[in-house]
Amino acid sequence: MFESLSERLEGAFKNLKGEAKITELNIAATVKEIRRALVDADVNYKIAKEFTDKVKDIALGTKVINAVSPGQLMTKIVKDELANLMGGTESSFNITGNPAVILIAGLQGSGKTTFSGKLANYLKSKGKSPLLVAADIYRPAAIDQLMVLGGQVGVEVYSERENKNAVEIAQNAIKEARAKNKNVVIIDTAGRLAVDEVMMTEVANIKSAVNPHEILFVVDSMTGQDAVNTAKAFNERLDFSGVVLTKLDGDTRGGAALSIKYTVEKPIKFVSSGEKLDTLDVFYPERMAQRILGMGDITTLVEKA
């Protein structure tokens, strides 16, 4: 569906065969192509601009060695720079508390509840003893959904069907975890819009009540230009510790991942690529960079160069 970036870049340099150096003049078309590729992949417009300006600075004056075409060289610079950006911050996952408290937050339908189940499954397989907490008191059947998932992975779910106070439920769950010797507490919260003041205050209150060791912002990898605003708003209220990128089993290029990373400078700690609970994956910056650029097939080409 997408013309790969490498093809585009080769095209942009076509008339420049024999030029040994990347110059201000011959780079203009290329930079435009890269920007287009990024925007096509849903990278925020402004961020795509800043990113390509940076790539341009790096590329300017870079010597083109014989074996490599300027297009290949540019592709490599872009890919490396993007992978750098996607990785960068050191990423660890803190489950050392007793219990360690993990708060899950994000927009409606982003995949929080499913991810909570996956994380519980993963931590259980690492020898931990997790407790899932149903702190979504709004969505129809949210508690039932988490109960089903908990049942599937054999992890207990804490819920209070009659309690309409999510902060209290979270606090009570921690007491329960202590009483039952659970060493990780995973709190699933309701989906909320960043502009919903009441709901954003609720999740901020849950945070101050339970002091989470990890706060994960769960985001749908198909999100468009607005990812920046959402991530910024959640980060301002929660100062989250990491990002979870979901639904990567789709065919989205996932440029939102770059926008978010660039805007809030928080590591992407997990990716989710399926509805089954065993599909929790770690994040590979390199792969994500290639995906955003739509260039799965050219890595080998560049590696040869």
Partner: peptide, 11 residues
């Protein structure tokens, strides 16, 4: 379609 979806909505 989710209104916050980007270009993937076309696909």
């Amino acid at each position: 379609l989710d209104g916050s979806t980007g270009q993937n909505a076309v696909e």
